[in-house]
């Protein structure tokens, strides 16, 4: 993977999605963290899905960035899900002393969308569950989202961030 370029941030319905396909140097990782926070705040996305299946190493710096993205999303009334951590990366993180407790993970983007209460159908990459009548994503950032998510899976209001430190 080449250490160049920015990571494109996509909005799919009610979810912000990134797939990290480049070797992340530190500055790029921090820029991604900021881009994601801004996009979530701007769109009121209920979820942030981060596909790391192409990433072959996660050191303590990148682990901290993933954790901070998750904590920031929680403060913005959103939920981050990290998708596709490779087995060798998981083994290494645990041995390094960074089990990333509190980080929500999923084996695939499909499962992540289901966890977030987002329905996917044939013909469109992701169609979201229609928001309740009282909820207007463009004008009402964050309110009324927990109820939606809770229908599919119990999501605590925030990750257990303290366990990382």
């Amino acid at each position: 993977m080449r250490p160049t370029g920015a990571v494109p941030v996509l909005t799919l319905g009610d979810v912000v999605l990134v797939s990290i396909q480049v070797e992340l140097h530190d500055e790029l990782a921090l820029r991604l963290q900021q881009d994601l926070a801004e996009r979530v705040a701007a769109t009121g996305a209920r979820g942030v899905v981060i596909d790391v299946s192409a990433i072959d190493i996660v050191d303590s710096f990148l682990a901290k960035v993933l954790h901070d993205i998750s904590a920031t999303a929680a403060m913005l009334a959103s939920t981050a899900v990290v998708v596709g951590i490779r087995p060798a990366v998981a083994i290494t993180l645990v041995e390094l002393g960074l089990p990333l407790r509190g980080l929500r993970t999923a084996p695939s983007v499909d499962v992540a969308f289901t966890m977030l209460g987002v329905r996917q159908s044939a013909g469109s990459p992701a169609s979201t569950v229609p928001p309740p009548a009282a909820e207007h994503p463009s004008s009402d950032v964050g309110r009324g989202r927990r109820e939606n998510v809770g229908a599919h899976e119990q999501l605590p209001p925030s990750p257990r961030v303290r366990e990382m430190g």
Partner: peptide, 14 residues
């Protein structure tokens, strides 16, 4: 092995 590589590369990164 893949795990051995990953551990060594991660240590090097740190």
């Amino acid at each position: 092995s893949l795990v051995e590589q990953t551990k060594l590369v991660t240590a090097a990164s740190e």
